[in-house]
Design a protein around this nucleic acid. Sequence first.
DNA 1: TTGAAAGCGCTAACAA
DNA 2: TTGTTAGCGCTTTCAA
Lengths: 351, 351
Amino acid sequence: MVQSAHPRSPAKRRVTLQEVARKAGLSPTTISIALNRAPEDCHLSEATRLRAIEVAQELGYRPSWRARALAKKKTFTIGMVYARQAPFMTAVNEAIVTALSETLHEAGYHQLLVPLLGEPDGWREVISPDRLDGCVVLFPMPNQLGQILAETTLPMVIINMLSDLPVPQVLADDHDGTRQLMEHLLGLGHRDIAMCFRGQHPHYSAVHRRQTYERMMAKAGYADRIRVLSYPQPETVVEDFVAGRYRPTAVICHDHVLAIDLIYECARRGVRVPQDLSIAAFNDVYPVEHVLPPLTAVALPGQEMGRLSAELLLERIDNRRSAGADAAPNRKWLPQRLVVRESTAAPRREP
Amino acid sequence: MVQSAHPRSPAKRRVTLQEVARKAGLSPTTISIALNRAPEDCHLSEATRLRAIEVAQELGYRPSWRARALAKKKTFTIGMVYARQAPFMTAVNEAIVTALSETLHEAGYHQLLVPLLGEPDGWREVISPDRLDGCVVLFPMPNQLGQILAETTLPMVIINMLSDLPVPQVLADDHDGTRQLMEHLLGLGHRDIAMCFRGQHPHYSAVHRRQTYERMMAKAGYADRIRVLSYPQPETVVEDFVAGRYRPTAVICHDHVLAIDLIYECARRGVRVPQDLSIAAFNDVYPVEHVLPPLTAVALPGQEMGRLSAELLLERIDNRRSAGADAAPNRKWLPQRLVVRESTAAPRREP
DNA sequence: TTGAAAGCGCTAACAA
DNA sequence: TTGTTAGCGCTTTCAA
């Protein structure tokens, strides 16, 4: 059983353009053009074009990604830069990353995970035009990253963060989201509305939500009822409520985790939601719809943010517009959507 | 203010090895060796070695990742291969991916996202030794992927799935996890224990959990009380319970989403957990600890799975052992951990 | 101990 | 319309 040199695994050597060219009796250049250029703008005789394609097919030719990357100075790779652990799977980022994948895939790009591990010098190594064609920066952003981003010429887009860098920033319109939520609550007849945070948040969403909350309370004539709670433990809110120290009729939570903790603390202490207290949250992600009662929430436009980010990035990659090409930050505020569920209702009539 | 040719952006041309060599009065080869080899096994005079490093430093030399990839036939990139999946699965994958990132990072590797979008031919393009040094396959795996994996020589590891491919598979020991949970429930005095699935699951976890459940019920003398529920809607379980059609004292849910829906349906219908019914789940991920009552759950060893996968992969990349080098699947079963919380308790005494 | 030369496999400017 | 010639920037024999 002489198996002519390949016993079982034919040791699959790569077929190169050279070989296709030789076999076709054409030059590598010609093959390259025939294979890569669209029929219309490839100035080759139809005969040679087809012959090139045919021979390539016949030999099972597959272009070498590495060689192409070197020659074209392009890796068709976009870095997903993030500090937290695997945020690309995290609830809020999931929709963003999924939409990014889809849009980038259509354009022939892949995503490289760039978790900010180890020393900043290592970050610089990968956040570079040599390794990537562009990058997307996700929340949160460590301080030392700013310097690196400022120095590179790599095209980039910053998602869900405010930055002074002169690059596109895709953001959620929290002023409008909060306005919608406040209108909903005010419309139900609430006057004692509190806003609740867990600790400090330098994030723009915290600032904007708070600003609009306070502005709308004032505009509705309830300036004296403004209350921004910032407890380390959500239990405190319910304890105060039960003890009668502070009894709002509605609480807006800065995020879904907080709201879910609060809703369960209410259940535990016998505070009925929404009869005794309405609860609303930001971030319409699992499991806000699966708790009792299902939460009214403002949804981050994750899909739109992902798609727009990809488009902005691809646009400036195509235009060879690198970082620093813009004079100022270019901020895109995307609208949020209020999803009303059972956790908010009209307050009980005042005694 | 004559700024000697660079107004602000010095148009940063890349510094090459050639240039460093010229400036140092040495050859590119020497510089390359001085920079990349460890001092001990780089047979260069200490003087030249230091000179090379010094000049490289001085010129701000950074090796070209693309050129190196071409020359060394290595991209230091690992593909994360996954199909679009139920959102709740991402929570389970998060720990796995995070641990993978850390271990791979230490070894100098990055991760490329390989969502299985578009046509399988496109998948083959990227799941290739030209583009990647290895890949990790995550659950679930589309049928057409099997063929591609079987044909490539790319080193790989399959996570949380059973496959006939002769490659390493990192799995959770569901027999043991279920045993722990069953011992917990039987120890509490439960006899009418049901196991609940949402629809069909070809996944090994469903099979193993069920097998061990049935085996242990039988061994405890409750063979006649075995009940495997597979309702499309979890409400049905609670409806039956309330109507008295079937009243188990404990239910084991195949996943946390199901358990949370169930716990919530119980609250709605007035079934007290755990007094009337104990509920336990698989997958110890958010928010099982944040619901009322917090759920007893079996934790998938995500971190260990991620780390082991990375190690197995790196090992066979180093050994140049590619797919097909093994004769049979190499399955690693990692232990799960039972986390007891408040959703399980002793059943009420029988009337 | 150091360097010359030949790849790695493709693309792109320029000729023919 | 096709082919020639240089790169792309580094690594790696192998010779000096």
